[in-house]
Write a protein that binds this DNA or RNA. Structure first.
Length: 354
DNA sequence: CACATTTGACCTGC
DNA sequence: GCAGGTCAAATGTG
């Protein structure tokens, strides 16, 4: 993140304020359109982020101003423009805001079921997740896995998810998502990103019009330990593991036709992450299709997609299983392109704010 | 070597 | 004080 001089900050402040106003306007307009809860939540988050960004920019602006006033020594052009003091303030602020964000972040749940017929679907949701913790939960038989976006460090994507195996149904995984993925957007905006070294990571860099809505080709292959554990405990007795052993998952109403072999390649940790199963030779023809995580369906779908309530997932799962072609929101890339782009008249121009 | 998971310690909110 | 959530060092893997 480039600190920038105070005139940079003034510009940033101006743009942010503009964005905040536009968001309010959008909020008012949306009110009449009776948006679903997640849409509202998204908007709230955008506004919250903007307000936070404004506050940070103001703080940095003030700090830069006072530092410039009190410190007569010439500032190096090559060094960090942020003073030590402002850096400390920035970090403290960042920490506080992170805590606050966790509260205000949109949160929604999903479920993934192991149906046991062949392809791994659903638990991989089109994003790269990195496991950062596991915790025994009181009253739960199985530990909860904590995942965050792989791009958290590089672009500051704060999306996280928690995966927990259901007590009642060992074939069922409860997935709680928190926060929107900003990684694709920021990649799109050309944010300075630590250059990915592996070929797969470059799959994330797709055409801008696709990038906003389409999951990266580098789809994560492991929601992970839970599945693998499950594989060990259950699947091994239920499936024959040939050259491409597979497990079949659905995530809520979503079907991920793309198959994820649950063999040892996906059991090991590390090793540069997940090579994309979707561009591998074993990829099925169905892998041209994607489904969106719930947040994408409700937020970018312009209301054309069903809003999935938490309570409705059980039904949705069975519906998706029994009638995937008509009821499931299985969509291909073209569909997403058609339906999920920002409204051209949408007054909010993210390019100006990031 | 880079990037992943694992896991105990630490932090935070109730 | 406890439980949930996160951090970060240790470790594993290709």
């Amino acid at each position: 993140m480039e600190g920038g001089s105070s005139w940079d900050l003034s510009l940033l402040l101006s743009l942010l304020s503009q964005g905040e106003q536009q968001t309010r306007q959008l909020e008012a307009n949306l009110e009449a359109a009776s948006p679903d809860e997640h849409c509202k939540s998204l908007l709230q988050q955008i506004r919250s982020n903007l307000e936070e960004a404004i506050s940070m920019a103001k703080m940095m602006d003030n700090t830069a101003g006072t530092a410039a006033a009190s410190d007569s020594s010439p500032r190096s052009n090559s060094g960090s423009p942020r003073s030590e003091n402002s850096d400390r303030v920035f970090k403290e602020h960042e920490r506080r805001e992170l805590c606050r964000k966790r509260k205000t972040m949109p949160k929604w749940t999903s479920q993934a079921r192991v149906s046991g017929s062949g392809a791994a679907e659903g638990l991989e949701d089109g994003y790269s997740w990195r496991k950062y913790g596991q915790k025994e939960i009181l009253g739960a038989k199985h530990p909860r896995g904590y995942y965050r976006c792989t791009h958290r460090n590089s672009v500051g994507c704060l999306a996280t998810k928690q995966v927990q195996r259901s007590d009642k149904d060992p074939w069922l995984f409860d997935i709680t998502y928190r926060g929107e993925h900003t990684c694709l957007q920021k990649l799109l905006q050309g944010a300075p990103v630590a250059a990915p070294k592996d070929e797969d990571s470059h799959q994330n860099l797709m055409h801008p019009t696709q990038q906003q809505q389409q999951p990266p080709m580098c789809l994560e292959a492991k929601p992970q330990a839970e599945i693998l554990e499950l594989q060990n405990q259950v699947l091994s007795s239920s499936f024959s593991f040939g050259s491409t052993p597979l497990a079949d998952f659905t995530l809520g109403s979503q079907l991920f036709p793309a198959t994820v072999p649950l063999d040892d390649n996906f059991m090991g940790s590390g090793g540069g992450g997940f090579s994309s199963p979707f561009i591998s030779p074993t990829t099925t023809t169905d892998s041209n299709y994607f489904t969106l995580p719930p947040f994408q369906m409700s937020s970018y779908g312009g209301g054309s997609m069903p809003n999935i309530s938490e309570s409705g997932f059980t039904e949705i799962i069975s519906a998706a299983t029994s009638n995937s072609t008509t009821n499931s929101p299985r969509v291909n890339a073209a569909f997403m392109m058609d339906h999920l782009e920002f409204d051209p008249v949408f007054p909010f121009d993210p390019a100006k704010f990031f």
